[in-house]
Structures are given as structure tokens and as C-alpha cells.
């Protein structure tokens, strides 16, 4: 798995990534995604990451990118791409 941009989050990130990958192959792809045992690990990783992003001022950049992406989200959630690209 890849590293985190915040080295202090690497350990919990790796544990989460491994959990997710197992869930993805063994449950999600087999149509059994109702439970998500990786949620507690994700919360830990996310807490660490958000702190690092805030400290570096990246959180505001993400908020902007998210806003730009929002208009297309409804379209994407049906599994297609923004009409401006495809």
C-alpha cells in the first residue's frame, strides 16, 4: 500500500488499507457490503489525517476541489462520467 502524506499516520493507514482491501475483495465485490468492519480503523486514520491536512492548510484546498466536483456527483453516482469529459 502507498504511504500517507503525513508520516505520523502511516501505521494506522496501513492497518486500515489492509482491512479495506480484504473487505473489498471478500465482501463488496461479492455483493455483501452491508457491514463494514473497517469503520473503526478508518475513523482513527481519518482523525490523524485531518489533523495533518489542517496543519498544512490543505483542508481548504480540498474543500474547494470538493465544491467543484459536487455538480457532477449526482451523475457519477449513476456510474457515468461528467459530460464535459466523456
Amino acid at each position: 500500500m502507498s504511504a500517507s502524506l503525513a508520516p505520523e499516520c502511516n501505521e494506522v493507514k496501513e492497518r486500515y488499507d489492509n482491512c479495506f482491501l480484504k473487505w473489498y475483495s471478500e465482501k463488496f465485490l461479492r455483493g455483501n457490503a452491508t457491514t463494514n468492519e473497517c469503520e473503526p480503523l478508518f475513523k482513527q486514520y481519518n482523525q490523524c489525517l485531518m489533523k495533518a491536512l489542517k496543519e498544512r492548510g490543505i483542508d481548504t484546498m480540498i474543500a474547494e476541489a470538493r465544491e467543484d466536483n459536487r455538480e457532477n456527483d449526482a451523475e457519477h453516482m449513476r456510474g457515468s462520467c461528467p459530460s464535459s469529459i466523456s
Binding site: 500517507s4 493507514k13 463488496f28 481519518n46 480540498i62 453516482m77
Partner: peptide
């Protein structure tokens, strides 16, 4: 680096 910011499964479409 590759970091995950959020992750959800849509209950209706089943899309991750």
C-alpha cells in the same frame, strides 16, 4: 502518497 479522505457505499445503487 495516496490518502483516503472519505468512503461510502450508496444504499440504493450499491456504488462505492
Amino acid at each position: 502518497a495516496v490518502d483516503t479522505l472519505s468512503r461510502t457505499v450508496d444504499p440504493i445503487s450499491g456504488i462505492l
